[in-house]
Simulated scan of single mutants.
Amino acid sequence: MVQTNQEIKLTSMKKEHAEQIDNALNAIAKKDVQSIFFVACGGSMASLSSGDYFVSREVAVPSATYTSNEFIHRSPKTLGENSIVILRSHSGTTPETVEAVKFAKEKGALTVAISMDEESPLCAAADYVIHYNYKDGSDAIDGEAGMYYTFIFKLLNQLEPNEKYERFVNQLQGLQSLIDINVNEYTAKGDAFGKKYKREKLIYTMASGPYYAHAYSFTSCLLMEMLWIHSNAIHSGEYFHGPFEVTDYDVPFLMVMGEGASRPLDQRALDFVAKFSDKVEVVDVAEFNYGQTDEDLREYFGSILASPVLRVYADGLAEHTGHPLSVRRYMWKMEY
């Protein structure tokens, strides 16, 4: 079991950030919300889909995650004046997402843009903006995870009030300490992972529940985009419906064991893959250090902490392959 006696530093969100969240929530409170859409691309879509998971599980309002371009071309029938569309682009310049916010507004939806750049085209086009600080020395509560999860859980509490949502938002004030503690505890494991798998040309990732978004992001953004390693994100519940046929003694798998409702799916998949592959690595979210976090809130925090922990595994690969995570062949270098 993890140790829980480390000192957790609490930090309050900056006033201007708290006001941005409250402004969006006040506007949403005036609407008869009948649908919520989460719209973005790549890693931004993955981060939003974790929130979608909790919205769909916790409240009775239908929600869905879309990649930006398909959102426009599919044009969901339920999209309209009673819809909330939450969009994210790290830079705020992703063309498909900028077009998606314009499309949503044309349909009458209330739009909320999440980005690190308040002056970006995405934020300029949206009804409301939630800006997060990035790599400027700010505490995590004002970063992308802190801002997004504060907004999502305040939204949940607004739609269907529950005291646990308030406790979660309050305990988010210790997020930076929890991230620092877990990154420190997993650094050696990430380095060992990189050393062991540095020559692999393919690594599969597997997860379920809100952690499937992390498997997707790790696969698409870290392994494929940044490290040029072939990969595929496999949902633990879908593993036995085709993908398990590729399992063999020399096929690598990174298994993210979730904390929460879908953990039995992960355990079933892990029990099988470990029998036939000699290259199975496990990141067990239940073993993260949660400090003094309330037991019933750990699933929510686990979803946040999984991202920085998995980044440590990518850093390990980058170190031992000599391939910096910043290198690209095509992205930002040509028209596409």
Rank of each mutant, 00 (worst) to 15 (best):
F38T: 03
S68D: 01
Q158C: 06
G80N: 10
E295L: 11
G242F: 06
M45H: 08
F168E: 10
E200C: 11
I72D: 02
F151D: 00
R268C: 08
K135G: 14
L25A: 06
K30Q: 14
D139P: 12
S91T: 06
N82C: 07
L10C: 10
S138T: 12
M331Y: 07
P121C: 02
V98R: 01
E144Q: 14
D315N: 05
L305V: 06
M255E: 00
I179W: 03
R263L: 13
M147Y: 03
E245I: 15
K31N: 15
S50A: 15
V309L: 12
V273Q: 00
E259C: 14
I304L: 13
V101T: 02
I234D: 01
P308A: 07
P62A: 15
D284F: 07
I181P: 03
I152R: 00
T150K: 03
H323K: 11
F54Y: 13
M331A: 12
Y128M: 14
S217D: 11
E259P: 12
P62D: 15
R311V: 10
R311Q: 13
W228L: 05
P95S: 07
A113Q: 02
K164Y: 08
A261H: 13
G190Y: 02
K102A: 04
L175W: 04
R311G: 09
V280Q: 06
Y336K: 13
N289P: 08
R311F: 09
A140I: 08
E200M: 12
D22A: 14
V280E: 06
I234Q: 01
A318F: 02
F301T: 02
T247K: 03
S303M: 07
I152H: 01
L10N: 09
V280F: 05
F37E: 02
I86K: 00
V312A: 08
H320F: 11
E70C: 15
F240V: 09
G146H: 01
S236I: 06
K279R: 15
N157H: 08
K189G: 05
K30I: 09
K275N: 05
Y186F: 10
K107W: 15
N82T: 05
T4A: 04
Y249E: 11
S307H: 09
L325R: 05
D142P: 10
A274N: 12
A29F: 10
E118K: 11
T67P: 04
T219A: 11
Y165E: 00
E185I: 15
S50L: 07
H131F: 10
V112P: 00
Q173I: 14
D271F: 01
F103G: 02
Y128L: 07
T67Q: 14
E238N: 13
E299Y: 08
K195S: 12
Y128E: 08
R268H: 06
K196I: 15
G316T: 04
M45C: 07
D250P: 02
T94P: 00
L110R: 01
T111H: 04
G322Y: 08
I203K: 02
Y197Q: 04
E81L: 05
R263V: 10
T205W: 05
E287M: 15
S236N: 03
Y300S: 11
M147G: 04
Y134T: 08
A318W: 01
M224Q: 07
S49N: 09
V55E: 02
S177I: 13
K135I: 08
A126I: 03
M147W: 03
G43D: 13
Y53G: 13
E58D: 10
Y211M: 06
